[in-house]
Structure formats: C-alpha cells, structure tokens
C-alpha cells in the first residue's frame, strides 16, 4: 500500500510553495479570504497534481477547510480565481462544481439523518432521470436506472463495511460510520477529484488501514485525491505530495519524506512523534495502561499522534 518511492516527479523545478506541476488538475491564483480583520486564506498560487494523492496539512485554524470551501463554491473569496480541469470554476455555485466532477466531504460530517443509509448513497449518483419533476411522476422512466444506482450503492457500502446498515436511518450510525458513509456517498458520483476534509477523524485504526487502501485504489482508478488530515501516519503512508498551510499561507510543499524533514514544518506542526509508527505508539500506550498508568494520561499520549 505504501507508495512507490520511484514514482514519477509531479512538479516542475524546485519544490517550493506554489510550485508548478507537470499535470495540474487545479490551478488557483491570488486566493484570499478575510473574516473581519483576519485573513484566513492568502494563497498567491497553488497547483494540485492530477491523478495523485495530495495531502493538505497544517495546524488548527491554518485555513485548510476555508480553502476547501472556496475551491468547492461553498464560500466566496475576497479575491482569486481558479480552474478545474482547465475550466474556470471560480464563482460557480457549489452544485455546478460538483457536477463537473469535483466532489467534497465535510470536516463536520453531513449525513442526512432521516434518510436511510441506502438513500444517502443513492443521492450521490449523478444524472438521475427521476430527479426531474416530470420524470418523477412516471416511475417506469426511472425504475431501471434506480436499480443500477442501488446495485452500485450496495457494492460501495460493502466496501465500507456499512452494508448491514443499509436500511437504517443514517441518524443511527456512529460518528465514525457517518464519516465512512459520507465518503462512500461522494464516490457514488465517480468523481474526477475527491476532496476529503479529515476523512479518518474518528475512524478506528483497523478500518483506517482498509480505507487507506481504498483511497490508493481511487488513484489507481484514475481519480485525483486531495485530503486534509492531521494523522501523519496516514499522510506518510498514502500521500504522493504534501502541501503545508499555516496561518492562511502555504509554507511548504513537496514529497512527504522531504516535507516531513523540513525543520520549519516539524517545529510548527508535527511534534515529536513524527517518525514513529502508529502501531508502535499504540502498543506502547497499551503497555503503559496495562502497567497501571493513569488511563487519562494514556489518552493524552494518544492525542499526540493526532496533533
């Protein structure tokens, strides 16, 4: 699952903040977003490489979610324009951006509580005839397509270990399961670019492993992934490229192994556990708990790996 170290280069020239990519899927210029006096995002230039997995990392409040919101049409910038797949999409509404194949998930999960898990999934499918008012009244015009959509949904749910829940209300899912549902739902549309805002937050380690596999799979299927994540283990495991934000600006960019060594990044963000394997860390905490250490303390240790 770990990415090949001999992967082809993604960038042109030196790997500096805002560097050009050989085959960019998103190109953005002069993107700024101010909240009152505070500048949440100030990015002169950013390019996201196509058919690669790019991690967007940075401390809390760095502006990662705000940048996501801008690029997906959920927020309006003070300045800036950008293109997706060579087409200018700045100023386009969120639904139009999604229709072009740039689909996102949210940091604060948005499961549709009083819809069944299956209905949540079906909503993700695009070009559904029955979603038009007139066709909706004529069930025979959409029943066949509905069956296809359902088959696809069930298959994806199985991959995300949610198939047994398909007839339950999404409201009955656990927090982690809702994250999974939202990700699976986004994939129903066969997107070109998937933007995941902290997809693994609250997902247990065993499932994280298999989900990382799925994300790498997405790339194999030709998709591009841009994700925000605080879990450095995940970033190191699957990212081809890392972009580091702090206080609204891009402060570093590069291949994971290189960026993780960058002293500025390490100091500002990564903390002391950056080189350690997640499993090793968990094993150590287990030993401490077994040895009678304060469980609350163990909880603190656990959080290190996320911070």
């Amino acid at each position: 699952m770990v990415n090949d170290t001999t992967r082809p280069a993604l960038h042109i020239g030196e790997a500096v903040p805002g560097c050009k990519k050989i085959d960019p899927i998103i190109i953005a210029d002069n993107v700024t977003r101010k909240f009152g006096g505070m500048t949440a995002v100030d990015v002169p230039h950013i390019e996201v490489p196509r058919n690669a997995i790019t991690a967007l990392i940075g401390p809390n409040g760095a502006g990662k979610t705000t940048l996501f919101n801008l690029l997906t049409g959920f927020d309006v910038p003070n300045t800036g324009e950008w293109s997706f797949n060579g087409e200018t999409i700045s100023g386009k509404s969120a639904y139009k951006v999604a229709q072009r194949g740039q689909v996102r998930t949210f940091q604060l999960t948005k499961s549709l509580a009083l819809l069944s898990v299956l209905d949540n999934m079906k909503l993700g499918a695009t070009n559904q005839r029955g979603e038009g008012l007139l066709h909706a009244l004529l069930p025979w015009t959409w029943k066949a397509q509905e069956a296809e959509v359902e088959a696809k949904a069930v298959e994806l749910l199985a991959r995300f270990k949610l198939d047994t829940k398909k007839d339950d209300y999404a409201a009955s899912l656990s927090g982690g399961q809702r994250k999974l549902l939202e990700m699976a739902r986004a994939l129903m549309s066969d997107p070109t670019l998937v933007m995941l805002d902290e997809p693994m937050a609250g997902v247990n380690p065993a499932l994280t492993q298999s989900l990382l596999g799925h994300i790498v799979d997405l790339k194999a299927q030709g998709m591009t992934v841009l994700f925000v994540e605080h879990d450095m283990h995940m970033v190191q495991t699957i990212a081809d490229w890392v972009i580091v934000m702090a206080e609204g600006k891009i402060v570093a960019e590069g291949e994971p192994s290189v960026v993780m060594q960058d002293q500025a990044v390490v100091d500002a963000y990564l903390g002391s556990n950056k080189d350690r394997d997640l499993g090793e860390l968990v094993a150590e905490i287990k030993r401490e708990v077994a040895a009678g250490a304060d469980p609350a303390l163990a909880g603190d240790d656990l959080s290190l790996e996320k911070e």
């Binding site: 997906t72 959920f74 509404s93 969120a94 639904y95 139009k96 999604a98 229709q99 689909v103 996102r104 998930t105 949210f106 948005k110 499961s111 549709l112 509580a113 009083l114 819809l115 209905d119 949540n120 079906k122 909503l123 993700g124 695009t126 559904q128 005839r129 029955g130 979603e131 038009g132 008012l133 066709h135 909706a136 009244l137 069930p139 959409w142 509905e146 939202e182 739902r185 986004a186 129903m188 549309s189």
Partner: peptide, 24 residues
C-alpha cells in the same frame, strides 16, 4: 421518487445535497 429523495436530503442538510451536485 429520486426527486423526493433530493428534497428530503435538502430537509436534512442542504449543503450536503449541493455537494452532491444537486441544485438545491
């Protein structure tokens, strides 16, 4: 119908529905 699914989705969370490409 699927149309009804979209409007129920809007009831639950409009942004989620927009993120899936529906003109809420």
């Amino acid at each position: 119908s699927p149309w009804g699914r979209v409007i129920k989705g809007i009831r639950e969370d409009e942004d989620a529905v927009r993120a899936l490409g529906k003109n809420a």
